[in-house]
Design a binder for these strands. Structure first.
Ligand code: FES
Ligand code: FES
Lengths: 146, 146
DNA sequence: TTCATAAAGGATAATTTTATCCTTTATGAA
DNA sequence: TTCATAAAGGATAAAATTATCCTTTATGAA
């Protein structure tokens, strides 16, 4: 569906966003631990998220990752786009090189419905909304301990 | 979304199904060529589809792959299940180890809608229906030549 | 200015997925 | 029975994804 890297990236971003009000900066170690993701890999991902202005980072002591107000308004699809690109939302469900209504695969109609629902989910949800949900305690970005 | 292997498998199965009425058996070479898939890899995939009774094969001269009547009635999800398993339809969209309504990730509700639409698409479409569409000329399992 | 700190960046490794090649087994016609 | 044929199976290889480690760069406090 979407890559592991992308999922780590979304969870990490939500975590950073959820701490925005506290005005603190978070370091990779804490972020990775909080979202159950491998530390070094998460570092790479946060790097590209920073480059794509999904989150902001500052080097050095008292540095770390944080999110700015305007960044909270970004739809989650921006994260997906930064890491995986937009192809999931455009690809043919049966792997034809081009998804098109004029040369459709036999599952085109049904598949497109699902794919568009996915697009809709990522497009019409902002990072801020997700962070808020987490802060309200109704949902989680960390696995249940088992 | 679903693996390349799975997509090759679905296209190959549809092709075999679309030739059922002709009562002929198809060999790997022809199938792979028709669906634009690598031959040896396709062979491996057809092997597991045969083991899972999605299609039927016969060795030796005059042998090949074909599909039986009852197999045309199978939903496409059976192919996905045979090759990729059912996890796409159950996994958390943000990568939590468990997708659950009681410990949901913040995208659970939106994501579940898309995931269920996908499930629906694969569950409520049979191999026979897809083959029929192809035979009627309204859709394709081969790439447009470019 | 020095120094400890934290992200950025580069190199590399491990794993998974995709892909190829070659040998073995089954099948049926001659 | 022999023989050519086609799938099954086993062993590898190539590519992509996931993951780790180490060095470099930026930053700000002391
Ligand atoms: S052509 Fe296959 S999904 Fe559109
Ligand atoms: S918990 Fe994430 S999709 Fe259900």
């Amino acid at each position: 569906m979407i890559s592991k890297a992308c999922k780590y990236g979304i969870r990490a971003t939500i975590f950073v966003a959820s701490k925005q009000e506290e005005g603190i900066k978070l370091n990779i170690k804490d972020i990775a631990r909080e979202v159950d993701a491998p530390e070094a890999f998460t570092a790479k991902i946060l790097q590209v998220l920073n480059k794509n202005r999904i989150i902001t980072s500052l080097k050095g002591p008292y540095g770390g990752f944080y999110i700015e107000d305007y960044q909270l308004e970004q739809p989650v699809i921006n994260i997906v786009n930064a890491i995986d690109g937009m192809s999931v939302f455009q690809e043919c469900g049966l792997g034809l090189k081009q998804c098109s209504a004029t040369h459709p695969c036999p599952m085109h109609d049904q598949y497109k419905i699902a794919r568009d629902a996915l697009l809709d989910a990522f497009q019409n949800t902002t990072i801020g909304q997700l962070a808020e949900q987490v802060n309200e305690g109704g949902s989680y970005i960390k696995n249940l301990h088992y």
